[in-house]
Structures are given as structure tokens and as C-alpha cells.
């Protein structure tokens, strides 16, 4: 029953058709919110009491690392779908999400390094969270290399899914690493349950830029996955009709 529903809504054909209409909406919303969030954050938000103006990189850093993990989470869900229900689309989505994940993780690491110079006095520290984020980055690259190294694409889809699912254990480690190690990194400033320790004047532009980056990344993902799907299914009749 479940598998029937899943297969109905997960055909590559309907994905390509639906995303075609959604894409302009997403890219517009994403860029618009990013512009608002960043201008607000960089120009109008007040400087931090301790860190001065250098904290402003959080408007890039925080959204980036949030999506570094979220994208992996998304990939893991897709991988489960691929393993359990053999959904083809899920594998395609993993394959197209991985480069984006790698990119955003790199941006997160890089912006963190830049932020580290004025605040910690060093641009790299073998601190738990940086290290495990670096590992997440390597994980993304590993997934990409693994997929690229087999001639039988269906086989590599399945192996990649297995690796992605196993790699999920890294996510809670990144989350909890701040508590486990004694570390330079500050504990999470924003929490859903309790009050946040960050001032609203900084929080709102941050939230806006997180959402904005989210939409931008989704539309980027739509772009890459569409071309990947069309490439993989090029022998199918619907692709010929579509193009």
C-alpha cells in the first residue's frame, strides 16, 4: 500500500514536471530573502558587544552549517527510500544533492575559519565540531567518489545508499560533539524550547537568511537533479517527449 503510493509520486517523470513549475517560485523567494537577510544583517543589525562587527559572518556561517547537516539528513531519508522501496528517484536525488552538500559544507568550514581569526586568534583548531564537520565534508566527497567508481549505475546507486544511511551516525556526533569535548566552540545559541541567547535584532535577519539560503539551495538542487535525471533516463520514452 505504502509502496504503491510512494511509487506513484516518485516517478522521475512527475518530479521533472512538478519542479518545472516550482523552480521559478523557489529561486525568486530564495534570492529575495537572502538579499533582505544579508542587507539587514550586514548593514543594519547592531554590532556584537564582545566581537564587534566580525560576528556578522554568522549570517553566512550559520545557515551554511545548518544546511550542511540538513542536506545530509535529506540524503539519508532518500537512501532509506531507495533501499527499502527501490525508488529510482531517491537515488538520483542523493547523487545530485551530494555535490551541493559538499559545497555548502565547504562554505561553512571556510567561513568558520575566517571568523576564527579575529575571535579565537587562529583559523583552524582541532576542535570537535570543526573536525566532525570536516569529516562530514569528507563523507560527501566519499559518497561522490564511491558513486563514480562503478560501471553498473544501479549497483552504485544501491551501494551509495547503504553508505549514506550508515554515515548518518555522524550527524548526532556533530550535534553533541560540543558537549562531549571541552572545546572552543560555543554551545548552540538558538534553541527551539528555551529562550534564545541571541538578541532579536540579530536573530530575525539570521532566520531570514537561513530560510533564504534554504530556498536557494532547493532551487539549485532542482536544477542539478533535473539535468541528472534527464541524463540517466535518456533512453526512456517520456524523456524524448519532454525534451
Amino acid at each position: 500500500m505504502i509502496s504503491v503510493i510512494i511509487h506513484k509520486f516518485s516517478s522521475p517523470k512527475s518530479f521533472v514536471q512538478i519542479t518545472k513549475t516550482l523552480y521559478p517560485l523557489f529561486i525568486f523567494t530564495g534570492l529575495f530573502m537572502l538579499i533582505i537577510g544579508w542587507t539587514w544583517g550586514l548593514l543594519f543589525a547592531p554590532p556584537d558587544a564582545v566581537q564587534g562587527n566580525s560576528y556578522r559572518i554568522i549570517f553566512l556561517h550559520v545557515p551554511a552549517v545548518i544546511f550542511a547537516e540538513l542536506i545530509y539528513f535529506f540524503m539519508a531519508l532518500c537512501a532509506l527510500m531507495h533501499i527499502v522501496w527501490r525508488v529510482r528517484l531517491a537515488a538520483y536525488l542523493i547523487k545530485s544533492a551530494a555535490p551541493i552538500g559538499a559545497m555548502i559544507t565547504f562554505i561553512g568550514l571556510f567561513s568558520g575559519s575566517i571568523w576564527g581569526i579575529p575571535t579565537w586568534g587562529t583559523w583552524w583548531q582541532w576542535d570537535a565540531r570543526i573536525t566532525s564537520t570536516l569529516i562530514l565534508f569528507i563523507m560527501y566527497l566519499g559518497i561522490l567518489t564511491l558513486h563514480g567508481s562503478f560501471s553498473n549505475l544501479e549497483k552504485s546507486d544501491r551501494l551509495m545508499s547503504i553508505l549514506v544511511v550508515i554515515g548518518v551516525v555522524n550527524i548526532p556526533i556533530i550535534k553533541k560533539s560540543v558537549d562531549w569535548w571541552s572545546t572552543l566552540h560555543q554551545p548552540a545559541s538558538i534553541s527551539v524550547s528555551g529562550g534564545s541567547s541571541i538578541d532579536p535584532s540579530m536573530l530575525y535577519p539570521l532566520i531570514i537568511s537561513v530560510i533564504g539560503l534554504g530556498f536557494t539551495l532547493i532551487s539549485l538542487g532542482i536544477l542539478t537533479s533535473r539535468s541528472y535525471i534527464l541524463g540517466r533516463e535518456k533512453n526512456k520514452k517520456w524523456v524524448l517527449d519532454h525534451v
Partner: peptide, 19 residues
Amino acid sequence: LSINKGAMLGVLTTLPLAL
């Protein structure tokens, strides 16, 4: 994982899990 491509690749990809 990477049985037919020299096992090194696969071991490297699982190295993060050893952390």
C-alpha cells in the same frame, strides 16, 4: 563497499565512522 575498486577507497569513506 568498494570491493572491486581496491578496498582503500571504501575504507577511506568509512574512516569518519571510526571517529
